[in-house]
Design a protein around this nucleic acid. Structure first.
Lengths: 214, 214
DNA sequence: ACTATGAATTCTGAATACAGATTTATGGAC
DNA sequence: GTCCATAAATCTGTATTCAGAATTCATAGT
């Protein structure tokens, strides 16, 4: 059994991202490197490496002499990120193997219908949503594109916990996912890609009001 | 006058990118950190920070215990990158201020017509091309998108010097740029965005044969 | 009371030191 | 001569140290 040997910076990056998911860090707050390094039980070197990576993904900002801080959230940026991901995921779908898509379409439909009901924990809903999108794009042949999508989505994680504990119209989300799946079963890739883009744009509108004005 | 004070890692990153433009490094070769740090006159710490950034942009690869190396080039990846940039630039154009676009359209047309002739140095041609694209997208209101485009294009720089010293059909490139500019003058944003996408796809096809098979 | 100035503190950015992994070199068995 | 084992050298990944910038705090002056 090959035991896991990954650079510390990657583990640290993932730990920080999962803490962001839990809403541990408030947007806009400064990072104290020594304090955080001590808490994580690592030295500043790999921590800084992780911070630099996250800054490249837009999760953090860095200012000369002032170090890193969690990038503030804004409706403007959220809209920008949604636009980007909508375009990228739509492209990824268009660049997928049609045969493979038809193959997984039934499973996508099942997953979409099995959406957890509104009372489920936000964490559960999000994980289910991620799973659906991951499966949807798993047939994309453009590897760089998949990496890029993952990276951009990391920048969106800051918004996840802001949207927790609400009465979002899950039915709409569910219906839109079903529509994508059905179009794939019918073999209409362009329409499915368009439906996916629409899903992102609609989702953005639904979430927009929950984000602080500026 | 505020004198320039930027982190070393950024300066190093840019220096490495410009060296890649000059074709100083062969794709696929390993990086010796101590040697490179010495040559640049810096310590390994900021150098590694720059390397990690470049790895995040796809310029480098990193393997546990083996350090960094310049990512190998391939037709497949070049096609992938072109697809991505085509989609992103097209989106950026669609998200630009139409009034501003009409304003700069004449200048875009002039620049496109003033394309350096075939005998000009590759460097000159590339710089001119970059200038045109930068101006074209300068009206985009989606800041994250512009950053992303810059980042993805950094990953394409590895291919720049491969395409040097050839008899590429510059006329086609020039004509396509003119077409985009003309559509913008006519105020037809969707068509201009589509023409821009086509320009990227065609450019990809033109370059493809010059890249090593695998 | 308020501001300005400067020292003390805290923190980041960069350099150096150390530990462990990987590669290269060496030597012996066949 | 080839193959394998083992030791030396090299290099990366991480920790620690150092230098200087930014911030805080205290004090003097108005």
């Amino acid at each position: 059994m090959p035991i896991e040997r990954r650079p510390l910076r990657e583990q640290i990056r993932e730990e920080l991202l999962s803490r962001i998911d839990r809403g541990d860090f408030a947007a806009g707050t400064d990072i104290n490197e020594v304090a955080l390094a001590t808490e994580l039980g690592v030295s500043r070197t790999p921590l800084r490496e992780a911070l630099i990576t996250l800054a490249g993904e837009g999760v953090l900002e860095s200012n000369q002499g002032k170090g890193f801080r969690f990038a503030p959230v804004s409706r403007k940026e959220f809209r920008e990120l949604c636009e980007i991901v909508a375009a990228l995921e739509s492209l990824a779908l268009e660049r997928s193997d049609p045969a493979y898509l038809r193959e997984i379409a039934p499973k996508l439909l099942t997953l979409a219908r099995d959406f957890p009901d509104s009372v489920a924990e936000q964490q559960v809903i999000e994980r289910h949503d991620d799973e659906w999108h991951d499966l949807l794009l798993s047939g994309c042949r453009n590897e760089r594109l998949l990496d890029l999508i993952t990276s951009v989505k990391a920048g969106m994680r800051r918004y996840a916990h802001l949207l927790a504990g609400d009465e979002t119209p899950l039915e709409r989300e569910q219906a839109e996912h079903c529509r994508v799946a059905e179009l794939l079963m019918a073999g209409d890739l362009p329409q499915a890609a368009e439906a996916l883009r629409v899903n992102w744009v609609n989702g953005m509108e639904r979430m927009m009001s929950r984000i602080p004005a500026s």
